[in-house]
């Protein structure tokens, strides 16, 4: 049963992500991405990581994608503005960077089996466990990410505020 569910959800994830790239309508792409987040959350739930699954929906589908769609709706692009651009030098670089990233990820993927594949404790993926490791083992990276986000927020406020002088 779980294996079948895994195959169904992974198929939906991959398929919707591909659709997201191929769609011409930006709202349709965004919706495809939301569906892929959902099936990804289902995959996490199948792995017993309920906390991560719920966070996936709460943060990505519930907050970030809402803002994305909000912006797309606000811009309200016309059909003529959505025409595909010709290949330029920039897209050449983009392809190279994308391929580099892909090969890096594939390398990591083939290294995984040697690290994991052990017995996982039953508390794996619970809120307590995540909180524990976040505030003990990974305290410094966690704080650094916090600072990074703070910088992002300040930058957004600076860009978004009206000029008063």
């Amino acid at each position: 049963m779980e294996t079948y569910l895994f195959y169904i959800f992974s198929f939906i994830t991959v398929w919707t992500v591909i659709l997201m790239i191929l769609q011409k309508n930006p709202i349709a792409s965004a919706t495809c991405l939301v569906i892929s987040f959902f099936s990804l959350a289902a995959l996490f739930a199948l792995l017993n990581a309920h906390f991560v699954a719920v966070l996936q929906i709460l943060v990505y589908a519930g907050a970030i994608m809402v803002l994305f769609i909000f912006v797309i709706m606000l811009l309200n692009l016309k059909k003529s503005e959505l025409m595909h651009e010709k290949m330029s030098r920039l897209s050449f670089f983009a392809i190279i960077i994308g391929l580099g990233l892909f090969s890096f990820l594939m390398m990591k993927f083939f290294l995984i089996p040697q690290i994991f594949f052990g017995e996982i404790s039953p508390s794996f993926g619970t809120a307590q466990e995540v909180g524990q490791s976040m505030f003990t083992q990974y305290a410094i990276p966690f704080e650094l990410i916090g600072i990074l986000l703070l910088v992002g927020i300040i930058g957004a406020v600076l860009l978004g505020r009206k000029d008063t002088d």
Binding site: H50, F51, V54, I57, L58, A61, G62, A127
Partner: peptide, 12 residues
């Protein structure tokens, strides 16, 4: 186990 978060996710 994550009931409260589930509710927040669904309302969002």
């Amino acid at each position: 186990n994550v009931g409260v978060l589930y509710i927040l996710a669904m309302t969002s």
